[in-house]
Design a binder for these strands. Structure first.
Lengths: 231, 231
DNA sequence: CCTCAATGTTACGGAATTGTTAAATATAAA
DNA sequence: TTTATATTTAACAATTCCGTAACATTGAGG
């Protein structure tokens, strides 16, 4: 994935292991985390642990069909923000009304074209990240930090900076006067599943200080780094 | 035509019978009714009977040029609602002021690309029912991007570009200073149900940068592409 | 004023991303 | 049909970025 947001988690529910494998391969390749279940009953169990952001649900399954499974998932408020997509063999087979009644967000017709699937999943997941990021302008001191165009304007003149530097600055400036140690910064900016040595942070701090007024980023020895416009 | 409106009638005026044939073929295929004339004098006579909705008028013709013909057409109040489009061999040959003075609605540069022509004619005739989109014209930096006729003018000289390139440029220029990653561009420009590999975008970006000032389209590595007139 | 652990700074190599070209495919025109 | 053009894909080149390590400097506690 291109940003430091947590990796989206997708639960795949289908009784055909070949389909599961195909989907997992393609989704993992695109940076999604996946789990799977073979039927609706199992899907509910796995979902409780896995807490997926999106569930791909085959309509036709043994034991319990997708529609009923979706209904039960929707009853659990833990999954109120979870997207549900149905997989269906043919368009006619899909009873649209019933599916949307139980809160389906979309449906996908087999045979599955992996690229199309990935594209649609990305589009769906993008809808909520866009809203989160919509309020993304920070004005602090002489800096204007704008996440929509990754620009930093320093006293009128625009700065370009690489992505990691920008993300680090953005995070620090978003929480002014708060100290973060290296571990916290790595987790928040790099992400929980990125493993780099702590002192990588130092190097990025150094580069930031070359570009913005140096005193904006303070070092608290033994504690961490802090953004503050105080001298 | 897909609606119940009467078939739009188009009068073609050109001294070259090959051009007439080309135009008639393509316009008839799209459901337009056509008539033709070989010069300006004849055009006036035919127009009185045919009562076209739109006249395509070659600028350079024997006996009477297009500009003069247009003036005479405009003098007849029967044709006050008739659209007039000029055909001109090269952009420089076209004296814009004179043409618009006599009431031209648009002009088309030869060699004619039938698809583009049909598209523009449809766009013009649509103005009857639909308001012209106010934002269909973008002027940004030295570029003028006009969606009603798919034209891009770069510092005075018109550019032709294929549809996808145009749409990509149009979209980027419509949202200046905002970064879009490849997925977003594919969704917004190619459409939600078109599934091509992400890097197709790169190739189109490359082609755009050959035609417009290169620095207008910025790459933000790991983030996406952005239109910006800043250096 | 020392000590030395913490932080600052620099430079290099590998990894990831993008640029570029060309060939393959699709679409439209003659 | 044939030709031309547009679009997509794939391969390879170029570039940028990031992470690491090595060395330098700082400053708080003694």
């Amino acid at each position: 994935m291109a940003n430091a947001l947590p990796t989206p988690k997708i639960l795949l529910v289908d009784d055909d292991p070949d389909i599961i494998e195909l989907l997992e391969y393609n989704l993992n390749k695109e940076g999604f985390e996946t789990a799977s279940a073979n039927d609706g009953i199992q899907a509910l169990e796995v979902a409780k642990d896995f807490k997926p952001d999106l569930i791909l649900l085959d309509v036709m399954m043994p034991r319990q069909d997708g529609i009923e499974t979706a209904r039960q998932i929707r009853q659990n408020s833990d999954f109120k923000d979870t997207y549900i997509l149905f997989l269906t063999a043919r368009a006619e087979e899909y009873t649209e009304v019933a599916a949307f009644d139980v809160g389906a967000d979309d449906y996908i017709v087999k045979p599955i074209k992996p690229r199309a699937l990935v594209s649609r999943i990305k589009a769906i997941l993008r809808r909520d990240t866009q809203q989160i990021e919509s309020d993304s302008l920070i004005e602090i001191g002489i800096l204007t930090i704008n996440r929509t165009n990754y620009s930093v304007i320093n006293n009128g003149n625009p700065l370009v900076m690489p992505k990691k530097e920008f993300e680090l600055l953005y995070f620090l400036a978003k929480h002014p006067n708060k100290v973060f140690n290296r571990d916290e910064l790595l987790e928040k900016v790099w992400g929980v599943d990125v493993y780099v040595v702590e002192r990588t942070v130092d190097v990025h701090i150094r580069k930031l200080r070359e570009k913005i007024p140096e005193h904006y980023i303070k070092t608290l020895k033994g504690v961490g780094y802090m953004f503050s416009i105080e001298e």
